[in-house]
Amino acid sequence: MTEVINTSLPQEEEVKLNGFKRALQTFCGWFGFGVFGRNSNKKRKKLFFDVIGYILLLLGAFTMIYPLWWMLAASLADSDMTLLRTKFWPSGTPYFGLFYNYERSITALDRTWGLENSLFRSIGNTLIYSLVPVTIGVIVSAAAAFAFAKLDFKGKNFAFFYCLAAIMVPFPSIMIAQYCFYDALNCCVCPLAMVIPGCFGAILTAFFIRQYLYGLPTSILEAAKIDGAGYWRIFWTFIIPLAKPAIMAQFILSFMGSWNNYLAPQLFVRENAWKPLTLAISAIDGLGNIDNQPVVMAASVIAIAPILILFAVFQKTIIGSIMMTGSKE
């Protein structure tokens, strides 16, 4: 390898250098760096940086993946001590079968909340709280986005900025009043407080779909209008299919946001039977039993698994649309 580089060197310069400098020059030459008057080799330099880049990226990827793997391994540990010592696989797994902690997470929650099958119930609640408001909300937001992007009506800009200014109000500052409001309407014993507000759409969702719709040609809509299609029909037959990437992405992002929501259900849902999965996990964590942590990890795996599967299936859509619209939730 060194010979290849040496042939490209002028011989006179090499003579001037002493032994150490020559060794350094040869060493840097391997990686494509030109020192002491040697020409740098672009191809080798790129290869060198590629290798370093890969090593760093792999290290980073390991840091991202490993804790999740650890969580899976820890959920199979037989005691708190084993859990703490777990590195890649627990040194002791439960006597009653590998998935005993998953069983225990179900029974432990049932006992705390005094309900039957409360973990499955909480998964169902989470699905209700995330699927219903998000589905309706994204469609409502898409309709608003369509109006903001493609229709021309009086007060459009006012309506848009009126809605957009609402993002300046943080949720923690209005949550107490909202709680009192729902409490006065008696909504805190039923899941309506978690469902109804989401059904009215979200301005950020509308904003990002609007950004996407701006990129679509208006001529299609005009053609449809001339052919006699009403706005309602244009929306359902043209806008929804055309803006599908943006709508899907916003749907998945909002779904994930609702699935992982913790503060709002903690505040608004006072009835154990209607609590979502996130509250179930923190309830199991609060038990403080001996050898409780593996059970908590098992419940955590149950909470993370569906969302990771969803992400794995739709990762191209999600990442692509985040890059496209610049939203992040």
Partner: peptide
């Protein structure tokens, strides 16, 4: 995609995992 995985995971699970 790999770097995005922690972002989509549930905050509750992640926090309890790191506390362990």
């Amino acid at each position: 995609v790999i770097y995005y995985i922690p972002t989509v995971s549930s905050t509750v699970s992640i926090s309890l995992m790191w506390s362990n």
